[in-house]
Design a protein around this nucleic acid. Structure first.
Lengths: 231, 231
DNA sequence: CATCGGCATTGATGAACATCAAGAGCCGCT
DNA sequence: AGCGGCTCTTGATGTTCATCAATGCCGATG
């Protein structure tokens, strides 16, 4: 289970840093880390397909992964972009259902796969862990409701603004670098690249943002927020 | 805590029938039922507003409730229709966030409000309960992913078909009664009533369904499923 | 340095669905 | 039976965004 260049202790340490696992003691962590697998993916490789059985969840150590679906017409719709330190697949693990989307590496990546069995064991006798898991899932669910709200009540410009002003916890809240190609971000916002481009152009003309390649500077956060107009 | 026409034992019995609570013993159930409140709503009354703190979850005993949002332009978008026997609000309870949507009674309704505190106590020392909760939330999350998929990759007709063929666990799977007005169903599918009407009309012309008021008969389930064309 | 290929922009057109505006059917009510 | 208020339908028009098709840009590579 321990990958070539990572000792078992390294692995346990890494797992211990996952917020989800904060309430586990060393023994519990040890059991889990013994069951954990290490994965390496090259850019473009698939981690799992939509429909694959979900027997555990993933932690992204390094690289970048996208979760996406194919539309009936073959178009790809990106659900979420996974960055290092994030986990995914926790939800599906607890029900007997397959993954609802597929996962593909956008660049060379390293992941940990944590199988469900030792997790469920850790659940027994560690209510704190259960609560953490519940809170984690709830947060996801909350995010999903927001996503549905965005998709069903906001137009293209509002969705782009929502994305731009979203707090990324960076040092400078008014400058952001797009985490991927514009086409991919567009797909996440359920837009075509063309429309995304036009919206950015328009916002720039209106002096609300400044675009330089993948770097965007928010010039007038207040007016932007005004355009968003929450329900 | 016990409503006028419902004894404490009645209440405990009712709670015991909630699948979520199946793994609780009588003591645990007793604690929870002591904390439970009974609510009555008239048609049109609000149960909670979007933004209200979520201090517990609800179980619908009788009546009908809708969860909905307001779009920036004041339009209402129905998220979910709650029928007797269903619970809602479990997810939000575990994070320190307010309700992401509001709840309004569509007809005179009776509900139980189960506060979070005794639940969290039951979680301690009852891992089975934790697992049930996790499974419940996961199922919701799964449903949300499907909803996002529907909203972002399917057109009006495909969404309507998806709604029509959805298994409602009835005796006759090919006949269904719309659970609410067409306008409300349309909103759930993120359509205007006009578009919904036109889609139904079109499907009827193509001999795929038969519409009589709120009763719809599926004449050719196979062809319908073919139109849906999953990714 | 020249060229190639992916990414991004821009313009012209089109399709899907919303909006606006009437009217039709269908109650329950007096 | 006749009225008023719903819900639902139907038609005409409008808006938003996708699609199609060039073209520009830029970094990588021989």
């Amino acid at each position: 289970m321990v990958p070539g260049n990572m000792t078992h202790d390294d692995l346990t340490t890494t797992l211990g840093k996952i917020p989800l696992f904060a309430s586990l003691d060393d023994d519990e962590l040890g059991v889990i880390s013994h069951a954990t697998h290490h994965h390496r993916l090259l850019r473009g490789e698939m981690l799992f397909q939509k429909g694959d059985p979900a027997l555990g969840f993933y932690y992204l150590v390094e690289g970048q992964v996208k979760l996406a679906l194919l539309a009936p017409d073959g178009q790809e719709k990106v659900i979420q972009l996974i960055e290092p330190g994030m986990t995914f697949g926790e939800a599906v693990m607890f029900i007997e259902r397959p993954f609802p989307a597929y996962a593909e590496a956008l660049r060379a990546s390293q992941l940990l796969f944590i199988p469900r069995t030792p997790l469920i064991e850790a659940l027994n006798g560690n209510p704190g862990f259960a609560l953490k898991l519940l809170a984690g899932l709830s947060t996801r669910l909350h995010g999903m409701v927001n996503e549905i709200e965005a998709l069903s009540t906001r137009n293209a410009t509002q969705r782009v603004i929502g994305f731009l002003v979203a707090d990324r916890g960076h040092d400078d809240p008014d400058t952001l670098a797009l985490p991927a190609s514009k086409a991919l971000i567009a797909s996440q916002l359920n837009l075509t690249p063309e429309t995304f481009s036009r919206v950015l152009h328009d916002l720039q003309q209106r002096q609300l943002i400044e675009v330089d390649g993948r770097t965007i500077r928010l010039l007038d956060r207040d007016t932007l927020l005004g355009q968003e107009e929450p329900g």
